[in-house]
Every structure is written in structure tokens, then in C-alpha cells.
């Protein structure tokens, strides 16, 4: 059995809502509300969910780009939520992130060389010549060429920019990369190029990814295990084949059936959810999904379901599988 490289336990992130004359705290947005999971070394864990479900906040909290409110994050058995800024800075060498928008995440005033060499400089590669060599090497790894180094981000297309973002993340040979919607701003034909590149890189450098996306087919393609989030909570987590063949949570089922498939012959047994995602500042009592759930029972309104392992490696938070029903 492999060792988990990352363990997240009871992670919470509440954002305060300020209001009134003195800007006092008048409420909280529960962006991430008690999420736990672990990622094995060399694995790709996908996290899916709709906008506002807290998947990006989860990703950023792991790197402490957003300070988590509560809970623990363990990276290689080291608890990192209590580390000082300096210790955290050193640790970030092993944990990197790729952002969603390749247009906004690269500084337009820096050349590609500067963008990619900055993390190298920060983590102690002082020799200019060495850095130049490394930048060239990185660009070639992600499918660009050495002569691209002197150019500026606006001279590249979206797919090429995302490659630069990936090269920057790879600069210090990290062990874990959080990918926050890395392909959702890209066109289909470019998206497949980037997905293939990311898979190749994983094999080549033995990387671990946490892959955050809203597109279920993309997540299915790249991940080993998939977690589904709804309103700040993890509702289901299991191997991708199990999740897609035999989804347990009603939300997962609805989500899967809502994906339009590019195949006119597939029989559609649509489960169309009513209404919108409720506001995370005032989430429904009990199970957060009960307001839209076609199978809601009385107990769902009152008791929050536990996130439990109902089958081998299959975690679900739903009363349908809990002791309340059985």
C-alpha cells in the first residue's frame, strides 16, 4: 500500500461577511465545510463540482494561499497549517499550482524567461547561466522551444500560455501540483494537447496531481479517483470507474446525467434538478442537497449525513446508505 502524500482532515474555510455601520461581522460564507480526503503518491485525484461549491478554495487552502479556518493539512506527514511563513515558503518548492486562466496568471510585463526563472531564483539557484539552461530545458519539456524564452506572454496563444504556466510549476521539481481548472479556458483541440502533456509529465517526473475541474468528462479522463463536492462539502469520493458506473449519491447521479454527450445514440435517462445551488452563506439544514434532491426524506432536513465508507474505498455522505434508513 502506498503512502499518502497529502492528507486533508476536516478542512474548513469560512469567509466573514461584514456589514452594518461599523463593518461588524454579520455572517459567514461556508466556502469549505469539513472536507477530508487523502492523495496517494503518484495519483491523480479529481475534484468536481459546480461553481461556488468550494473546489478552488479547497485547492488554495491546501497550499495556504488562502488560510484555512480549521482542520489539518498534512504533506508527507508534516502538518502544514501551523508552519511559519518562512517554513511554508520552503515547502512550496514541493507543492505547486497551475491556475485556470492562462491570460491572467502570467505577468504581461515579464518575459517568459523571467516568469519561469523566478521560482528558481527564490529557491536558491543563484547562477544566471544555470537558470537560463534550466528555463530552456523546461520549455522543451512542455513542448515549446528555447527561443520562446525572450518573448512576452501576449505573443502566445492560450494553449501555449498554459504550457508556460505548467513549466513554471515544474521549475523546482515539485512532488504535488494542484491544477485549478487548467483546461477550462481552452478550446477542445488544444485542451486534449494539454491533457496529454500533463499525463506525460506525471509519468516522466512521478508527479501527484489534485485536478480541480467542472467538466466531468475531462476529470474522468485524467483522474484515478474522483471526489464530488456540493456546497462546500464532499458528497462522494471513490475510484473513477466506480463513480461513473455506479454513482451512489443522488447529486452525483444528477450531475452525470446532465452532461450532454456528443453521441446521438446514447439513451438519455435525464435527471434534471430543479432550482439553483443554495447560497453558501445560508446553507440548508441537515444535508445541503435536500432542497434539490428527488429522494429527500425527513431525516435529510435535520441531520447532516456523515461522510462514510459504504463500500471498499467508496465514501458517500447520504442518508440513503446510512444507519437511519437501514
Amino acid at each position: 500500500m502506498q503512502k499518502p502524500i497529502l492528507e486533508v482532515n476536516g478542512l474548513k474555510k469560512y469567509f466573514d461577511i461584514k456589514g452594518g455601520v461599523f463593518g461588524r461581522k454579520i455572517g459567514e460564507v461556508k466556502a469549505v465545510d469539513d472536507v477530508s480526503f487523502s492523495v496517494m503518491s503518484g495519483e491523480i485525484l479529481g475534484i468536481v463540482g459546480e461553481s461556488g461549491c468550494g473546489k478552488s478554495t479547497t485547492g488554495k487552502s491546501i497550499l495556504r494561499l488562502i488560510e484555512p479556518s480549521e482542520g489539518e493539512v498534512k504533506f508527507e506527514d508534516q502538518e502544514i497549517t501551523k508552519l511559519s511563513d518562512e517554513e511554508m515558503r520552503k515547502l512550496r518548492r514541493n507543492m505547486q499550482i497551475i491556475f485556470q486562466d492562462p491570460y491572467a496568471s502570467l505577468n504581461p510585463r515579464h518575459t517568459v524567461e523571467k516568469i519561469i526563472s523566478e521560482p528558481l531564483l527564490i529557491h536558491g539557484m543563484k547562477n544566471t547561466k544555470e537558470r537560463k539552461e534550466r528555463v530552456k530545458e523546461l520549455l522543451e519539456v512542455v513542448g515549446l522551444s528555447g527561443y520562446h524564452a525572450s518573448r512576452y506572454p501576449h505573443q502566445f496563444s492560450g494553449g501555449q500560455r498554459q504550457r508556460i504556466g505548467i513549466a513554471r510549476a515544474l521549475a523546482n521539481n515539485p512532488k504535488l501540483i494542484i491544477c485549478d481548472e487548467p483546461v477550462s479556458a481552452l478550446d477542445v483541440s488544444v485542451q486534449s494537447q494539454i491533457l496529454n502533456l500533463m499525463e506525460d509529465l506525471r509519468d516522466q517526473f512521478n508527479l501527484t496531481y489534485v485536478f480541480i475541474a467542472h467538466d466531468l468528462s475531462v476529470v474522468k479522463h485524467i483522474s484515478d479517483r474522483v471526489g464530488v463536492m456540493y456546497l462546500g462539502r464532499m458528497v462522494e469520493l471513490t475510484d473513477k470507474d466506480k463513480l461513473y458506473d455506479d454513482p451512489k449519491h443522488p447529486y452525483t447521479r444528477a450531475l452525470l446525467s446532465a452532461v450532454p454527450l456528443p453521441d446521438p445514440d446514447v439513451e438519455k435517462d435525464r435527471m434534471i434538478l430543479k432550482g439553483d445551488v443554495p447560497s453558501p452563506s445560508n446553507p440548508p439544514s441537515g444535508c445541503a442537497f435536500h432542497t434539490r434532491c428527488p429522494l429527500a426524506m425527513d431525516v435529510c432536513k435535520e441531520v447532516r449525513p456523515q461522510f462514510e465508507e459504504i463500500e471498499d474505498n467508496h465514501f458517500v455522505a447520504c442518508h440513503l446508505y446510512g444507519p437511519a434508513v437501514q
Binding site: L255, S257, A258, V259, P260, R270, I272
Partner: peptide
């Protein structure tokens, strides 16, 4: 739009 909302709108 999100997939579940997209399904509603297409419908």
C-alpha cells in the same frame, strides 16, 4: 452555466 443548469436551459 453549470452542467445541471445547462441541462435545464437546453430542455
Amino acid at each position: 452555466l453549470d452542467v445541471t443548469i445547462q441541462a435545464q436551459i437546453l430542455d
